[in-house]
Design a binder for these strands. Structure first.
Length: 661
DNA sequence: TAGAAGCAGATTTTT
DNA sequence: TCTGCTTCTA
């Protein structure tokens, strides 16, 4: 087991821990992936059956990377590879096998958040789709049924939301659709309702590992508890200080309470192999202002290094120019552009820096941005494929029936919608003589349905050619990029000839974009997108109150975000702020961020104005009273007393005793 | 039906 | 300022 020798003492301790729960608190740059892949290799080298291990990640990229690294360590002397996949894919595989226990068919289709919003929009046009989608996700993640939401609602909007939620759920059931939350939720539900199955599954996966544990949500925690029903061999890795997905439902508390929840041993990895000590000093100082955290301190294995720089500029144009100049110099001095990055808190700040980079002739790539399969043209094609798989998918029908233009506009669709009643569009068009619309439109629709029907009989690899011949989608777009994307997608389909179309579609909706990394470009992205990455030379812009921190709602998460940003830097870190910034057609004067002071980079008084994000209208959970909604907030000394409506009974409770959901 | 013009709204987003 | 949606007009 040579590979153990590559680890430091703490890492080795973590990697060789076998039985019982373990929390590996892996600080930024402390060799987290190395440690857990080594642990996996170690388990396998002890003769543990790969099939009895289960490693869960959040991204496909992380899963495949870890798998590769573990296999490299162990070599090819194992019968089959260990199971490494995302939480969602695990849910998918599980539901394929067991969704019948909920009386549902396993030919369900996964919808992404975009589809979800469109469905919600069609249910209600007077609430913002983002709001609806967030609310519903909250309900699902706290196991609230539409009825329960209705009973908890104390305001009109929430009553309305309950009805929308109800309609949405019915729509999903009718069309046999599953959203991202469902993949986890239904899996949990099945395990919860079938005790024997839960035991069987738990027995099957004797060694569970979870990556990025700080990003898990409530359901994921419950799911893990089910998986650990018959044993306690769960090893989770994460860093509470890098929990930055709270707004998406991640519960920072999970990692803080793992020790208690699973009676776990804790091992801290604090030796950092990424950044110099100057950089870590700033990071440590900043994060120490957070109260809810494990105490730890990163120590550099690399020496002191260059001082962290703070630069002030008059405005965003000057800022961009200063930074572009610096980057140009770096590149001229032989630094590889892919070792340089510019980070910001919100996408809106990318514009000024892009302008600056362009005017200095620096090539950059915007990381994050629009994902390949989220693009209009790809979604169009996906809708065609979905319609082929499931002709009753009205959502997809509406999307593509007039793409390319066939002369089927809004009016025709409205007429059809009224006439078809409970039937799906395709069903109806097949059976009806359509004499209430023009002859031409009727023929077009009949032809369209026939075409879809024809496609459904083809093997997957023949679909691209026939599709392209008949609909010419790639030529109907003016944009060259779109044409290229269409071609690329056709290529992807052709490669999948050993899958059914349905399998292909489900895989696709769980796939995220693999960035084509190019060495010739510098990186420009949000801090969120930078998580897990590292750069020798790092510029973080917009360190101004109101931009970063963006607001006071969850200042600890903002601070963790700043911590993530700082710890991306290997050798050189430059933090930049301006005196005024132009945004949305308005110029505002801004003050430098408190984070600069907290990081010990500039002198100044550290303001202590903390507030938590509980507002009137927030959903909260109480250990005894369950879920309720805040209807009032009062001060009680230096604490907050909340008036909470628990589905009819109103109670006053100190904010310490409830948890926001 | 399809493009043009007018208007509100605008964090972060692993699946 | 820019985007995405609704309303207007040929």
């Amino acid at each position: 087991m040579k590979f153990l020798e590559e680890l430091n003492e703490a890492q080795k301790k973590a990697a060789t821990h076998i039985d019982g729960a373990l929390l590996i608190l892996a600080g930024a740059g402390s060799g987290k992936t190395k440690t857990i892949t080594t642990r996996l290799a170690y388990l396998l080298s002890l003769g543990i059956d790969p099939a009895s291990t289960l490693t869960l990640t959040f991204t496909n990229k992380a899963a495949s990377e870890m798998k590769q690294r573990a296999l490299n360590l162990i070599g090819d002397n194992i019968s089959h590879p260990p199971l490494l996949l995302t939480f969602h894919k695990f849910g998918l595989i599980f539901l394929k096998l067991y969704i019948h226990l909920l009386n549902r068919n396993n030919n369900f289709v996964i919808i992404d958040s975009d589809d979800q919003k469109k469905i919600l929009k069609s249910i209600s046009s007077d609430l913002p789709p983002n709001f609806m989608s967030k609310e519903i996700s909250k309900y699902k993640n706290s196991f609230l049924s539409p009825d329960e939401v209705y009973n908890l609602a104390n305001e009109k909007v929430y009553k309305q939301m309950a009805l929308i939620y109800d309609k949405y759920q019915k729509y999903l059931l009718e069309n046999n659709l599953v959203d991202f939350d469902d993949l986890l939720l239904l899996t949990y539900q099945i395990l919860n309702e079938n005790k024997d199955l839960a035991k069987e599954i738990s027995n099957k996966y004797q060694y569970i590992m979870v990556d990025e544990y700080q990003d898990t949500n409530e359901i994921q925690l419950l799911l893990l508890k089910k998986l650990c029903l018959t044993h306690s061999n769960i090893c989770v890795v994460g860093d509470d200080d890098q929990s930055i997905y709270g707004f998406r439902g991640a519960n920072h508390k999970n990692i803080l309470e793992f020790e208690k929840d699973f009676n776990a041993k804790v091992i801290k990895l604090e030796l950092n192999y990424r950044s110099t000590n100057q950089i870590l000093k700033a990071a440590n100082s900043l994060i120490s202002f957070n109260k809810n955290r494990y105490d730890k301190k990163l120590i550099s294995a690399l020496g002191d290094g260059k001082e962290v720089e703070v630069i002030e500029n008059f405005n965003e144009v000057a800022e961009a120019e200063t930074i572009a100049k610096r980057i140009k110099e770096l590149i001229q001095n032989g630094v590889s552009p892919n070792e340089i990055a510019v980070l910001y808190r919100i996408n809106a700040l990318s514009r000024s820096i892009e302008d600056g980079l362009r005017s200095y002739g620096i090539n950059y790539k915007l990381v994050g941005g629009m994902k390949f399969y989220e693009r209009e043209e790809i979604k169009d094609l996906i809708s065609y494929l979905r319609l082929i798989v499931n002709p009753n998918d009205d959502y997809s029908f509406k999307r593509v029936v007039n793409k390319p233009r066939r002369g089927i506009g809004k009016t025709t669709l409205i007429k059809l919608e009224e006439a078809k009643k409970d039937k799906s569009f395709i069903e109806f068009i097949k059976e009806d003589d359509l004499n209430f619309i023009s002859k031409k439109a009727a023929k077009t629709l009949k032809d369209f349905v026939q075409f879809i029907n024809f496609l459904s009989k083809l093997p997957i690899e023949e679909i691209p050619e026939i599709l392209e011949e008949n609909i010419n989608l790639s030529t109907s777009y003016k944009d060259e990029d779109k044409k290229r994307n269409v071609e690329e997608f056709y290529g992807m389909i052709r490669e999948k000839k050993d899958l059914t179309l349905r399998e292909f579609l489900n895989e696709l909706s769980l796939e995220s974009d693999q960035d084509k990394l190019s060495d010739a470009l510098i990186n420009v992205m949000t801090i969120h997108a930078s998580k897990g990455l590292e750069f020798e030379h790092l510029f973080v812009i917009g360190l101004e109150e109101g931009f970063f921190p963006l607001n006071d709602a969850d200042i600890e998460e903002e601070r963790r975000l700043a911590y993530v940003a700082i710890t991306r830097a290997k050798k050189e870190l430059v933090l930049s702020y301006t005196k005024s910034r132009y945004l949305r057609g308005q110029r505002t004067h801004v003050n430098k961020s408190r984070f600069l002071t907290e990081a010990g980079l500039i002198k100044g008084k550290v303001a202590l104005k903390e507030s938590n994000s509980l507002k009137v209208g927030s959903l909260v959970k109480h250990k005894v009273f369950g879920t309720g909604r805040v209807i009032g907030i009062n001060k009680a000394g230096n604490k907050k007393k909340l008036k909470i409506d628990f589905g009819g009974s109103v109670r006053e409770i100190l904010s310490d005793f409830v948890e926001k959901i």
